[in-house]
Design a protein around this nucleic acid. Structure first.
Lengths: 215, 215
DNA sequence: AGCGTGCAAATTGTATACATTTCTCAACCA
DNA sequence: TGGTTGAGAAATGTATACAATTTGCACGCT
């Protein structure tokens, strides 16, 4: 992506994911021009990409709107994630390299450190989520399917819009952490069935914790 | 999509899918301007959409190239299609409406007519493929997941680029036709397991016929 | 001959002017 | 009062001019 387009894409995307541009908001090009500091041309290019990310909608002569998902859509989103992340884990189990295994192991060790530290919950949560993303991305990569990787990247991004509001408890994080460790064992054993099963549980548990954020 | 963008999108897309723009071809904006009869602005907009469709690639300051997939990529493509179309069929079985069932039935009856006719094989193939697309699209729709629908639309489009070279025999078409009929029975019975299984067979058989086009 | 160097042409990136469409709102009529 | 209409404003769509980058090739150097 070229310079100005990238600026516009990142700034608008962050605005959407952070909630600064709420779902349903009409993104006027003139406003984005001053918000991003580039002209309309790269703005429009960036908007096209955001359409591809399913983060906004555009209709002829009516500009761009931040997409709003129906409440029951979370179910659909996680159903697909469960299916595809499970598939990715199964594929990965059969072909993951030692190098990639080590990367996941390292992330999990970092998680241990974060959880054992005396940082406040919000900081732990933020760092855990970052490492969580590393683990998942590694598995997608190890699955060997660039297509699967790009689809899952998009799905998770959409899930983020929902998740921002969710609260995380130590119990929830610990459960997720245990899933990761078990997943690592399954991958190291090259056991596709095991890897797929634990990954599916991992995603469903995440969905369940969204439904009842007080857990 | 606005007028000029749509013209550009459709023309370039058809050029790619028909093979007029071979994989690897460098699509220069100036050439596309005269090819499409619109200015560079809508051309660029259309190119952005084609990137989202995974039909072209763009790199900074290097323009657009028609994407070329490695030979062994067909396997990955069909693995995902099998997984997702199977899932779509299973979802559809549980919630399809009489109206949608009828639409599929109608398409299948039209297929009967086409196959019974005395048209040449190439014509039969073309009409069969069109009706095949109708059946699949109906099931995606009936699955109730817009996301699944859009992902599968893209995957099939990519498969088309491969399939253009494939040859179709009457036996192959007849087999596919039988799959459709069985699928309809499974859907009508509301049997998710059955629907998913036959759909998975249907996709794998299509893949197998690609691998050995002489079948 | 092989390999940099640098200029010119080609190509893409960005900004902006202009065209077209949609929206807003007030005036008007039934 | 309620609805319709139309002019002006605002927003998007398109074309084009200009800037920045890359590419191709000739030239000169070792």
């Amino acid at each position: 992506m070229s310079r100005a387009v990238e600026i516009a894409y990142v700034k608008v995307r962050e605005g959407i994911l952070s909630g600064a541009f709420a779902p349903g908001t009409h993104l006027k090009e003139a406003e984005l021009v001053e918000f991003c500091g580039v002209s309309r041309t790269p703005i429009r290019s960036a908007l096209n990409r955001l359409v591809a990310d399913d983060l906004i909608e555009m209709h002829r002569n009516q500009g761009a709107r931040v997409k709003e998902w129906p409440e029951d859509d979370v179910e659909d989103l996680f159903a697909l994630r469960t299916l595809l992340e499970g598939h990715a884990a199964a594929c990965a189990a059969g072909r993951i390299s030692l190098n990639e295994l080590e990367k996941i192991e390292l992330a999990i060790e970092e998680m241990d450190a974060v959880l054992a530290s005396r940082k406040p919950l919000t900081v732990k949560t933020r760092e855990f989520l970052r490492l969580n993303a590393v683990v998942h991305a590694s598995i997608w990569q190890a699955s060997g399917s660039a297509r699967l990787q790009s689809i899952l990247t998009k799905l998770v991004e959409q899930a983020l819009q929902v998740r921002t509001a969710a609260t995380f408890t130590l119990e929830r994080i610990a459960e997720s952490h245990h899933h990761h460790k078990e997943l690592l064992r399954a991958l190291r054993a090259g056991d596709s069935v095991w890897a797929e099963a634990i990954m599916r549980s991992h995603i469903r548990a995440a969905q369940a914790s969204l439904a009842r954020p007080a857990d």
